[in-house]
Design a protein around this nucleic acid. Sequence first.
DNA 1: GGGATTCTATGACAATTGTCAGGTTTGGGG
DNA 2: CCCCAAACCTGACAATTGTCATAGAATCCC
Lengths: 229, 229
Amino acid sequence: MESRCENCIIRQFNSLRAMSKEELKHVSDSKITKTIKKGEPLFEEGDKLNGVYCVRNGISKLSKLSANGKDQIVKLATKGEVLGQRSVIAEESTNLSAIAVQDMEVCFIPKESITNTLQKNPNFTLEVLRHMAHDLKEADDVIVNISQKTVKQRIAEAFLYLKNNFGEDEDGFLALTLSREDISNVVGTATESAIRIISEFKKKGLIHTSGKKIGIKDERKLMEMVEGF
Amino acid sequence: MESRCENCIIRQFNSLRAMSKEELKHVSDSKITKTIKKGEPLFEEGDKLNGVYCVRNGISKLSKLSANGKDQIVKLATKGEVLGQRSVIAEESTNLSAIAVQDMEVCFIPKESITNTLQKNPNFTLEVLRHMAHDLKEADDVIVNISQKTVKQRIAEAFLYLKNNFGEDEDGFLALTLSREDISNVVGTATESAIRIISEFKKKGLIHTSGKKIGIKDERKLMEMVEGF
DNA sequence: GGGATTCTATGACAATTGTCAGGTTTGGGG
DNA sequence: CCCCAAACCTGACAATTGTCATAGAATCCC
């Protein structure tokens, strides 16, 4: 019924491509395909994960609750990404929640398949390591951005990021529609501040909106704003 | 003349402990011990690293320059930590600068020793992976802290962090003395703001100072402040 | 299709933080 | 020991951002 990992194209984008045929077969036999509706969690902060989730479709936000009760979104994960790896590797409960911002289709892969392969296949381990190195670099960039740029700059940057990573629909709106609250949680500000700045951008002709959908109108100016003009 | 890696205690604290005897021997034969004076760089943002640095002594700040000309300190690395790993593994130029905040003694290990071992010894790769998973988690925490806490809270937290990680001297001052500018670059704020808050903490009896040295007087209140009271 | 609920929007205000412009202190080198 | 540069400190002010209150718009569900 469900397709086999061996034939899954998604695999090309993540570390599973470094698995051998037999390893993939084992993964395929033990995996469980799940459907997650928008707003539902894949897992929540503090959970002990018994495996990882390979995203086949849809988008998930990875967030962490702060002491003052606000979520900070640390990353948006899409097709091809593997979630929960960090937790399984470090053998710790997860430090992030993963919640679908669009309907998702994911494959749950029990951790045994992963840890076994980690111990036996250096290529796979190295591949996972490379991905994590990349994630770490991105996290460093986020730290610098969030602490050194103004809210306005960060929101402009977020829109450009959304366009570059998730594209636009046929009407020129960002394909990934986030609530204003999610936007504010990405850039780390109050929801009202985010809304205010979105209104300002709209007045200035940088973006256009329709309901909660947002479209980029003047990419150049947004880029200049990110750079600090 | 210099001690051999095989006998180095430092190794116990990092991923090198997962190397085999022969691998260690190779590392030991190819390593170069260097002395770095306070203020001098180990490497700078954008450099292509030909190896990694194993810290034997002293402390280094890892920072990234932002568009507005300010450094953001992302991590303070001390005895036992291996610097430059991320860059060597991802085969990218480094995204961070490493500058000594105290005189340092480090061992430079050419990247061949590392990459060879990564390809052959899954235990080593896994060990490196675990360390990187840990770093990634810490980076996530930094993101949440920096975006959801006030400058005051972050400075309080920084002092507690310095105490817990680097200890105090015989007079009760933090063993790691950072300049006010470095402190402001750790928490991501303007130097003047940091100074002002340090003065305030002093007036309130939370800390005491002598020159640029800072000592913690009321740890409990600092902790409460971090939690948001 | 209507009512409840959630999301978006805006104003008014306060608090936080940054900037500029000075002084003062400190510490290292001659 | 003294001088100079760097680091530290403070005040005044402006800009940014958060908070609270309120109202309209959209959406969901029965």
